[in-house]
Design a protein around this nucleic acid. Structure first.
Length: 276
DNA sequence: ATCGCAGCCTGTACGC
DNA sequence: TGCGTACAGGCTGCGA
């Protein structure tokens, strides 16, 4: 579910609430959302103060006092929310709950429990962060950087865009949409993305992510697959999808039916006519 | 270096 | 109605 725009939406919400708060009690009813020992995790978290909330790609990090980083990844269905007035019973699918010193409660909800969290030293987190590709909305991400990173590989450009070490933050939805906007075939090999296509792709990535953030992300149908930030607001970007999930519908640009196929075990949609 | 696949989980949609 | 199957926004680890 959550890709860069959805994680960014959460981060902005949490940033308005969490910095300065101290965690009083941690409760982890589903231990598999914690990487490593749950006891050690709880011990580490209780009494800690959250200093800042950050995003790196799809990773979400609460900076803690003592030069520590509380890392989490939402994977397919994770959500963070803050309840100003903790509900009883706790929300559905609450996998980890943290009571805060102002009476609010921070809740990690995750239907599929593929999400994970862990407390790391700042240095360990920095090492992990350094292994990721560039942030697509930072100045360091340029058409040249993108092209150079794609050029190293004969793999399909779609697969490369999903590879977080190539560029951080794209998932299936926004990779599909960026390629459609750039008129680049998902099957084209990275090494065969020339300067013109790299420029278009770079612009498409930046635009699609920025616009999606402006719409609070993308919510799709179904219950648990719905993206919603901690206010329950639905992401509105779905209305702007051009290729994702639109098999057999006319390409908004040229009218040719959009095709679906599978790459690296993931669905891909593209226009066979105007994406080359 | 790259690939294809299984696995981690749960829920939904769909066909019979 | 029930049951089986495929699929879902991510990522890792394995053998080849």
């Amino acid at each position: 579910m959550p890709e860069l725009p959805e994680v960014e939406t959460i981060v902005r919400r949490l940033r308005a609430v969490l910095p300065g708060r101290r965690v009083e009690e941690a409760d982890v009813p589903r231990p598999n959302v914690v990487r490593g020992s749950v006891d050690a995790f709880v011990e580490e978290i209780e009494g800690s103060r959250v200093e800042q909330v950050e995003r790196r790609g799809k990773n979400l990090v609460f900076r803690l006092d003592g030069d520590r980083a509380w890392w989490s990844h939402l994977r397919m269905s994770g959500k963070w929310r803050v309840e100003r007035e903790p509900s009883d019973p706790p929300p559905e699918y609450a996998r980890a709950l943290f009571s805060l010193d102002d009476g609010a409660r921070l809740v990690f909800q995750d239907v599929r429990t593929l999400g994970e969290m862990e407390v790391l030293s700042a240095a360990a987190w920095a090492a992990r962060s350094d292994a990721l590709g560039p942030e697509p909305l930072d100045g360091g991400f340029t058409p040249e950087v993108l092209r150079e990173r794609l050029a190293r590989s004969r793999r399909a450009v779609k697969e490369l865009l999903l590879d977080q070490t190539v560029v951080a933050g794209l998932g299936n939805i926004y990779a599909v949409e960026a390629l459609w906007r750039a008129r680049v075939s998902p099957r084209r090999r990275g090494a065969n993305v020339g300067p013109a296509r790299a420029r278009r792709l770079h612009a498409a990535i930046v635009d699609v992510l920025s616009e999606a953030i402006g719409q609070a992300g993308t919510s799709l149908g179904g219950t648990y697959l719905n993206w919603a930030d901690d206010e329950g607001e639905r992401g509105r970007f779905r209305a702007f999808l051009s290729a994702y999930g639109r098999e057999d519908e006319p390409c908004p640009r040229c009218g040719t039916p959009i095709r679906r196929f599978v790459q690296a075990q993931r669905s891909t949609w593209s226009c066979p006519s105007c994406q080359r």
